[in-house]
Amino acid sequence: MIVKELEAQQHSDPLRRAGHDAERQMAHYLKRAFGEDSGIHVLNDLRLQRGEEIAQIDHLVIHRCGVILIESKSVTAQIGINERGEWARYWKGQARGMPSPILQARRQGQLLHALLNDHTEQLLGKIFLGKLQKGFGTMHVDVLVAISDSGVIRGGKHVPAEVLKADQVPERVRELVQYYARANSVFSLNFKDSGYEATPAEVMGIASFLRARHTPAEAASAPAAPPTPAPRAQAASAVPASVRTSQERQAQARPQPEVACRACGSANLSVQYGKYGYYLKCADCGGNTPAKPVCAACGQPARLSKSGAEFTATCPGGHRWAYWTNPA
């Protein structure tokens, strides 16, 4: 199940554009493999914050026994890994060192684990007659590095098992999920890899919680957008009216976004207006979640406008779509 699609992005920088292409390739493989699998939840391009720390996760797979972080790497030629675990890119026969994406993904996994621990009581139920709180302490956090299909991996026996070509990643994900499921079976003697196992409802709640905690980099760093000046409005109107009308019809046909309360994971929400603008109010726990729509077409943060119980989002690129309808 795809909980969060990869957000569309436009980059003028060739390196960033290549990186996004690698993520798009990996997102495609994950969707083809798990798009209809209700037991596996996939979030692409997930940006999480805990205190002053930020984790940018290319792809996150959530299953009943843990999570798998997948780091996509764009490689157009070759990469090499030596016996000390040092990474290098090769271009025209020359090697240039690069940070280890395995260590990078592990650091992101540590922040994710800590964030989930902070909200244990909200995300996990209790056992033994409802008296013992379940926890994330033994949750498995695995990392994989996906090398784009066009790249070549050098290093032979020194290449870690976590490093795979992008098309090999889905099968490795299945192997990990099945391995931990067997470890948690009643007949297993593998006590080392057993212990943590969430219910399907808890997995769905964790996925919804993380989806609601996502904050796009542009929305987090940019101040409130001023009113659009006249020249930009004229530039937008240069698009043929037939094209704009078609885009608006498609946008209006979209379903409401998959948002949830960041405190309890509930979808029983309504859009309200407060001191800092629009936010989502949870009817179940009373918590507040920022309303931060992001355009699926161009990846830009959008602004909300209200008409009765209906809220429409509009991005600087001129795209409009139905964002939310408050319950009667």
Rank of each mutant, 00 (worst) to 15 (best):
S72W: 05
Q10D: 13
T245N: 14
C315L: 12
L304Q: 03
K131N: 09
F128I: 05
M98C: 08
R24V: 01
P229M: 14
G85Y: 15
M98L: 09
N117G: 14
N268A: 12
A235S: 05
Y279W: 15
M26Y: 12
Q108V: 04
R50P: 00
R254V: 04
A224T: 07
I102L: 04
C298Q: 01
H319W: 14
V186P: 00
L43K: 03
Q178H: 15
L304S: 01
Q10W: 14
E162N: 09
Y323L: 00
Q110S: 02
F187N: 06
N288Q: 13
N268T: 11
E248H: 10
S242E: 15
A146L: 13
A297V: 13
V143C: 01
A166P: 03
D149V: 12
S100E: 09
G35A: 07
A225K: 04
L115W: 14
I54G: 00
R16D: 06
V243W: 11
W91V: 06
Q250H: 13
V141S: 02
E248F: 09
R249N: 05
S307F: 15
A181Y: 05
A291F: 11
G66M: 02
S237R: 13
K4E: 06
D167R: 05
H319R: 02
E218H: 10
E7M: 07
G66N: 02
A8S: 06
P227F: 10
A322M: 07
V159P: 00
L46S: 06
C298H: 01
I147M: 02
A253L: 02
S38F: 08
G135F: 05
P229S: 14
E218A: 12
L304R: 01
I68F: 07
S242Y: 15
K292H: 15
A222T: 10
K126R: 10
E258G: 08
E162W: 12
I57N: 01
A283C: 00
Y179H: 15
C285N: 12
Y276S: 02
P216D: 11
K165P: 01
R64D: 14
K92P: 00
P290S: 03
A225C: 01
A55P: 00
T228I: 11
K306S: 10
P99E: 05
R50V: 01
V141W: 09
S194I: 13
G274R: 08
A217K: 07
Q108A: 05
P216V: 03
L129W: 07
V141E: 04
V159A: 09
A55K: 03
A77H: 10
E197N: 02
H41I: 00
Y279D: 08
I40V: 10
A263R: 08
H158S: 13
E23R: 06
V169Y: 11
G287S: 03
S38D: 14
R174I: 10
S12N: 12
V67M: 01
T312D: 04
A291Y: 05
N82E: 06
P216R: 02
L112F: 11
I127N: 04
A183V: 08
H140N: 12
R17Y: 14
